[in-house]
Write a protein that binds this DNA or RNA. Sequence first.
DNA 1: CTGAAAGCGCTTACAG
DNA 2: CTGAAAGCGCTTACAG
Lengths: 341, 341
Amino acid sequence: MATIGDVARAAGVARSTASYALSGKRAISDEVRARVQRAARELGYTANAGARALATSQTRVIGLLAQFLPDEFAPAMLQYIQGVTESARDLGYDILLSSDPEGPAALKRITDSRMVDGVVLLNVAEDDDRLPVLRAARQPGALVGLPADCTGVDVFDLDFEESGRAMVEHLHGLGHRELILVSQPEHVVERGGAYVWRLRNAAIETAAARGLALHAVYGSSAQPEIGRELHALLDAHPEATGLLLNNEAAAAALPTVLHQRNLSAPDDLSVIGRYSDEFARTFSLPFSSIESAPDRLGRMAVRQLVRRIEKQDPEDAPHVVRFVSPELVDRGSTAAPPVGH
Amino acid sequence: MATIGDVARAAGVARSTASYALSGKRAISDEVRARVQRAARELGYTANAGARALATSQTRVIGLLAQFLPDEFAPAMLQYIQGVTESARDLGYDILLSSDPEGPAALKRITDSRMVDGVVLLNVAEDDDRLPVLRAARQPGALVGLPADCTGVDVFDLDFEESGRAMVEHLHGLGHRELILVSQPEHVVERGGAYVWRLRNAAIETAAARGLALHAVYGSSAQPEIGRELHALLDAHPEATGLLLNNEAAAAALPTVLHQRNLSAPDDLSVIGRYSDEFARTFSLPFSSIESAPDRLGRMAVRQLVRRIEKQDPEDAPHVVRFVSPELVDRGSTAAPPVGH
DNA sequence: CTGAAAGCGCTTACAG
DNA sequence: CTGAAAGCGCTTACAG
């Protein structure tokens, strides 16, 4: 493989001159630059990434710490990964993907060995054990998901509280009086998935303020359990006219459940989910939903991270905590409750 | 950050001794080794990846070239990525993930700059334009998906021909006489997705040999189009008693379509898909299917790749082309055709 | 505008 | 069993 030395020799200049001619970091005569560029092209020269990283302390690689948790819905994860990967590439960075269940150890190894210039953490828990490691690292980090303590990191998340409020307000506005909210499994909460209770508590409060009955339950994130649970819920609350889902698996299972019960939305039941439009299209889910915006969140995290890596902001620019406002995508699954309710 | 020099100084030895004590690549007295290890621990020493790569010409990183094609089913991709990522970690490698639509350019950049020791290509097309780049690279490559020309690479894929045969034989054995096969969209074929016609042609041949009628069509890979197409197909072929799906989107759409037509499998229609068990569970798909084994294929590719990287086989060990035999996972969606057919 | 040299942090022959 | 030194391939002050 050709090195910068080969290029310099072929062009008849010093290695430093070849380097500068290629990087443009100092003035070079047109003639020399052309010679160097031609030599580089002809030799098929590409800088050795390790050598460059060693010399510059920059890798142009971003670490992406994902976790494929058995109780999280994998297809939803993929969209975050896509958003991060694409925007990183647009900004000239490659992605080192780790799905190691030993998150803290993996993060420490990657940052200590300086394989990456910065790190994006997905699926961040309230008291995420990767955070102490990240704060101790010299590289900056951006999170998707809201932890209890945001010091030292940039944080991006959907506004789940506003989402819970919006769901309830929407159905209240249509005249509903009794609702069911199906959240993710309770052990997601125990593990620190704050988004579950953030939406749930806001929904409960809003329902109370509006004088609505709200049955808030946790549902499985796997089939076929969640299908059975949905049936049981609808049996238990025959007067409920609205169904809110903060649980992708429940949304995926619902069309079948409704067919089996010979119900349709919104004639018999108004339904609002919380998932991405991409998800809705992939599985033809006909329910209106709060857009979870995974690609957008991934993009925001990367953009901010790169800004820090490249120190475009002043060194001690305050860290940000940014919530994406929920947007209700109307797919026509809500209406006034059926007469008689 | 502590360097090997800091460790050596703290332990009172030369840098070379510190390096050897940590790597174990030559005999070191117990006492010195203990001193070095303690110093390394206390200083929190981790070798700089760039420096090590430069010195050893090894990165312990594997490039993963994925493509998120709009007409491929994204959730299926994720499982390959998971399989590759997990097995790489088990073998001590990290994953550099590229989803750049400019596959050949991305591959060239990653290999030329020596960011990776080897490469796994996902979603390989018949005449994949990444292959010339891969063959010119000094790093070995493993493919998931069968190209027309396999020279110089290791190849892993599901045996789609046997899959097509097995689907037809299974329904033939149950007494069916008229079948429908829904493949991926035709432009997947045009793009070089050989698995589509490999399964399809084998199914057509087998049907012909057995004297069965087989309606082989291409279906959309998106909702709601595929749902409409399934309805049209069932309208057009009312005598068909078996439905074969080499199209994940069709499988995901089918439960709703069947409900809408008030049909059930296998009483009215026998159904066999081709997707992974993971996929079936995530979406509660009740159809028997040929297991597509994405995790296993990813794992096989990585294992073989690492063997080449680490030259565990003799230098010129012949390249392998390995097909995973289709396994029919019985979910009870096939039976003898309804009487009257 | 260009060159000679130092240095990034490792590993590994070479000597002893 | 251990050390001094060279070298991996870059970039970037330092000199001119």
